[in-house]
Amino acid sequence: MYEVRFHGRGGQGARMAAEALADAAFLEGNYAMAFPFFGAERRGAPVVAFTRVDKQKIRIRTQIYEPDYVVVLDDKLVDLINITEGLKKGGMAIINSAKKPEDIDLGKKVSTATIDATGISLDVLGVPITNSAILGAFAKATGLLDIDSIKKGIVDMFSMRMDKKLAEKNARAAAIAYDKTIVGTCKAQRTFEKRKMWLPTYKEMPLGLATPPMKTEAGLVGPGSFIENKTGSWRTFKPILDHEKCIMCLFCWFYCPEGCIERVGNTTLKINYDYCKGCGICANECPKNAIEMVRE
């Protein structure tokens, strides 16, 4: 049996990739299952999905804690999350990145494959949706499946949610990725702090979960505590404000869904990149074109 954990962001199609991989493995005579972590994550938030493949019927229904492979759809996640957490000895990371494996720092030396899935998907599909190209890289790097099965799996699963022609284009992206995948070993220079979580006993937990603002070992909880959730990491495009052009009309400040444009006195605006998700409303609404969206 082998187990795969996919890391992506809400809307990037990690779940569909996991499903297409399961279908591909099934087409080769295996038993396979794929499932998301059932959360309520919004578009842009980090998410995970899983695939499990075996020669016989799979009975285990738990989440996957020690995967054989991790697949990362968005290389920015590598900086946020310890994606090798729980990765089995001898396991492998397959990462969407234009970099070479040895230029990627996963905090732990592991066998790593990279593919510029974003570039391929922009070429083939016209959008940076990488969930098909990354599967081509998976097939190449692991040697577990034939690329033709991956292509069929993609067409099978993707055409349930989109036009068949688009599904076939996705299969083509996988085939291109298959040929361009580089396998090597990543570097291990940084360390990841273990994410802290507030896990009170039932007695420590406020009765009925009625929670006032409180400080816990894992930070603030209760009213207003989301302020510690730095959503800036979701961003692909970044707004740059040209102060010369700004006339302080405050439309950007008003419209920002994140409330991350700060008013400094009556004369200046400042974008708080800790929270900016890069939606681009500010740039779109600025009457003086003082805000430009640039790729991170």
Binding site: R42, I227, F251, P257
Partner: peptide, 24 residues
């Protein structure tokens, strides 16, 4: 717009999709 309070009673860090009209 300029008269609106600076205090954010609905704070940053919420997890709405980027560009959410409801969050506004």
């Amino acid at each position: 717009i300029k008269d609106l309070s600076l205090e954010e009673l609905f704070t940053s860090g919420h997890t709405a999709c980027p560009g959410c009209g409801g969050a506004i």
